[in-house]
Computed example of a mutant assay.
Amino acid sequence: MSKQQASGGKTVARQLIPLAAAAILATASSAPQAQQLLAPDAIVGGYSQSFLSAQMAQWEFALPADINPLLDTTGAHSALGDHGSYFFLASTFSQDPVVRNVTVRTDQTLVFSPVSILFWADAVVNTEADMRTHAAYALGDVSNLSVTLDGAPALLPNGTSSLSQFLQSSPLFPLSLPAGGIVETLFGYPPGVYPAVTLGYTYAMTGLTAGQHQLRFTSTNLSTGPYAGGPPVSYDVTYNITAVPEASTWAMMGLGMLAIGAGALRRRRG
């Protein structure tokens, strides 16, 4: 075998890797799947989902307007939701449907909230009990809750029969509103650190197969109590998701494709 033949054999093997990987991704994305939500009390990345609902609110409200995920209409800043073992998919301020593109890893848990109220202390409402009461008034009556993946409703875990059972009330936490954040920029509220709570519907979904998926979540809420009288507020958010294997999976896939390539090359020589 000449040096040129050896070099050519390696080229064939290298070419087989991306082609085979693309075929695997295409097969995975075309296969229908029924995706299950995690139970509301399931631990995600070492945290309760009620804690993550507070962490997600802090993340959303700490970022400046030009890169804020709540204001993002395309997904250009969706990568900011990557928190390692879990990935935050932000909701929106807009009542028009929002479609975003995002890339996640197949080993990440997706955490998202169709509707959630963040309430922090002020001069009038400043006890934890009062904040929780006012958060409940602001959330009000919720309807039109839906979570679909690839056009099919997400499966409910054992012990739940409705998406309304996923209501999460966060622990009391110190909310940091930075200078230049959206609360100051859009609403003129002074930066600082305030006691706060969240109340809303938070969902967690794990194990998306590699490939293309579409996750959509919706909600409508009508505030009550001192916040009654306004129109209902509806949100409709769609994420076009590209799920990619984690690095170790790609490495193992690459070794497998190298083996296939070497085998094909041997058969070609024979």
Rank of each mutant, 00 (worst) to 15 (best):
K10R: 10
V193E: 05
T202A: 10
P190G: 01
A136N: 01
F112M: 08
A57L: 09
D130T: 14
P231R: 10
Q15I: 15
L208A: 13
S53V: 00
S91V: 02
W59C: 06
V233Q: 14
T74I: 05
G263A: 09
F93Q: 13
V124A: 12
M1T: 15
P195V: 11
S113C: 07
G8W: 04
P40V: 03
P190H: 00
A259M: 07
A20R: 13
P32S: 08
V111T: 10
H77N: 15
T92C: 07
M205T: 04
Q165G: 14
L80K: 14
G230L: 14
T11Q: 13
T133S: 06
V12F: 08
G180A: 05
S2W: 05
Q35T: 01
G9E: 15
P190S: 10
L37W: 05
G75W: 05
Q58T: 07
A65H: 12
A39E: 15
A34P: 03
K3E: 10
V183F: 06
T133V: 06
T202P: 14
A247D: 12
S116E: 05
S176E: 11
L163Y: 00
A228P: 02
T27S: 08
N240C: 05
D141T: 14
G46Q: 01
G188T: 02
S234M: 12
D107L: 12
G229P: 06
P226K: 00
P231W: 11
D41P: 06
S48I: 01
S164D: 00
M205G: 01
Q168S: 12
A22H: 09
P97L: 01
S146C: 02
P171I: 02
Y227V: 07
G200W: 04
G256L: 01
Q168G: 13
Q33V: 00
A259V: 10
Y227A: 03
G263K: 01
I182G: 03
G140C: 02
V115Y: 09
Q33W: 00
A123S: 12
S162P: 07
L71M: 14
M56K: 11
S248V: 04
Q165E: 15
H213S: 06
Y203E: 04
T238R: 08
T73W: 09
A152Y: 08
V102Q: 12
S53R: 07
L145P: 00
F61M: 11
R105Y: 12
Q95T: 13
I117C: 03
D96T: 01
F112W: 02
M1L: 07
L163G: 00
S113A: 12
Q35I: 00
D82N: 15
P18K: 05
S48D: 09
L255V: 04
R216K: 04
F112E: 02
T133H: 09
A34G: 03
G140R: 02
G180L: 07
T74M: 09
L118M: 09
S219T: 05
A121L: 09
A79P: 02
G84L: 04
F119Y: 14
